[in-house]
Design a protein around this nucleic acid. Structure first.
Length: 265
DNA sequence: ACCCAGGGTAACT
DNA sequence: AGTTACCATGGG
C-alpha cells in the first residue's frame, strides 16, 4: 500500500523524533523507516508531500499515523495559552502514533532513568535476539514469543535493572493479569492501575503506554522535562484549553523544551 | 572520577 | 503523604 498525503500538521522528523517511538530510523536519503506491527513502513517527505509505503493495509496505516485526527484544531485551542502557543508553533508537525501496546509497554519500561540513544540500542538488541526477521529487519517480539523468559536471558540487551521488569511484564501479559483489550476499553485511571500491576511500571511509564499505544489523549506523562515546564509555567496545573487532550499538549511541550535548551517565552 | 539519562521501589520520616 | 538512596549501563 502506498499513501500520498498533502497534509498539513505532519512532519516526519518531528513525529518520529519527539520521543514517542524508538525504532524509526532516518536513512541517508532523508526518508524514515521502521518495522512496525511486523512489517516495514517507509515514509518520505518532500515539502508538503508525504509518501508512505508498506505491505500494511491502508486502514492500518491511517490508524497508525492517526490520519483522521485534525491536529490543527488542538493547536488552535492550545494557542489560548502563550507558552503552549509557542510550543505548538515550534513542534507543529507532531502526531501521536498508535503503536502496538506490548512494544510500547516494554519500550517505556526500558526508558526509565535512561537516555534515548541507549533506549533505542536496548530495543534493537531485544528485536535482534528475540524477534523474527522480516523485510530486512526484525519484528518486535510478542509477549508469547518471550513467554517463560527470565531476567538472565535478557543479559545480551544490557538493560541493567530493567531486565527483571521486562520479565515481569511478559509474565503478567501472558497470564492475562494485564489485559490490553480491557485496558483499551477502560477510562484513564483504572487503565493506569492495570498497567501498574507490573513491577517497574509507575505513573509515568503507564501514561506513556496509554497515550502512545491506546491513544488516550487525556494521559499526561510527567517526565523530568515536563516537570520543569510545569513548575516554571503551570504551578497550578495545565490551562483549561488542554482539557481532554493533555497528552497532545504534553508532546508539544516536551519536544519544545528539549529542542530549545532552556525555557523561553 | 563524576554526572546524567522520557523513573520506580523500598525504606525511611 | 512527602523525601531519599539505590538501582545497571553507557556516553559526556
Amino acid at each position: 500500500m502506498k499513501i500520498k498525503l498533502k497534509k498539513n500538521d505532519f512532519d516526519l522528523k518531528q513525529t518520529f523524533q519527539c520521543g514517542q517511538c524508538f525504532r524509526w530510523k532516518e536513512l541517508p536519503d532523508g526518508s524514515f523507516s521502521a518495522i512496525a506491527a511486523g512489517k516495514r513502513i517507509t515514509a518520505r517527505q518532500t515539502n508538503d508531500d508525504i509518501v508512505i509505503e508498506s505491505a500494511h493495509t491502508r486502514r492500518f496505516l491511517e490508524r497508525y499515523f492517526d490520519l483522521d485526527t485534525d491536529y490543527g484544531e488542538y493547536k488552535q485551542l492550545f494557542s489560548a495559552d502563550p507558552t503552549l502557543k509557542a510550543a505548538c508553533e515550534c513542534s507543529s508537525g507532531i502526531r501521536i502514533l498508535r503503536q502496538e501496546p506490548f512494544e510500547t509497554l516494554i519500550s517505556f519500561i526500558i526508558s526509565q532513568n535512561n537516555n534515548i540513544p541507549r533506549i533505542s540500542g536496548i530495543i534493537d538488541r531485544l528485536c535482534e535476539n528475540f524477534g523474527e526477521e522480516t523485510d530486512g529487519g526484525f519484528s518486535f517480539p510478542t509477549a508469547k514469543q518471550l513467554n517463560g523468559i527470565w531476567p538472565d536471558d535478557l543479559a545480551p540487551l544490557r538493560a541493567g535493572f530493567r531486565a527483571r521488569y521486562i520479565a515481569d511484564a511478559v509474565s503478567r501479559v501472558n497470564s492475562g493479569e494485564v489485559d490490553f483489550s480491557e485496558i483499551d476499553a477502560l477510562p484513564l485511571e483504572p487503565a493506569r492501575e492495570r498497567l501498574k500491576r507490573i513491577v517497574g511500571v509507575g505513573d509515568k511509564v503507564a501514561d506513556c503506554v496509554l497515550l502512545f499505544a491506546f491513544h488516550k489523549l487525556d494521559a499526561f506523562p510527567k517526565d523530568v522535562w515536563v516537570k520543569r515546564v510545569m513548575s516554571e509555567f503551570y504551578p497550578n496545573g495545565l490551562p483549561e484549553c488542554t482539557k481532554g487532550a493533555e497528552g497532545v499538549a504534553q508532546q508539544y511541550l516536551f519536544d519544545y523544551v528539549r529542542n530549545n535548551d532552556g525555557l523561553k517565552v
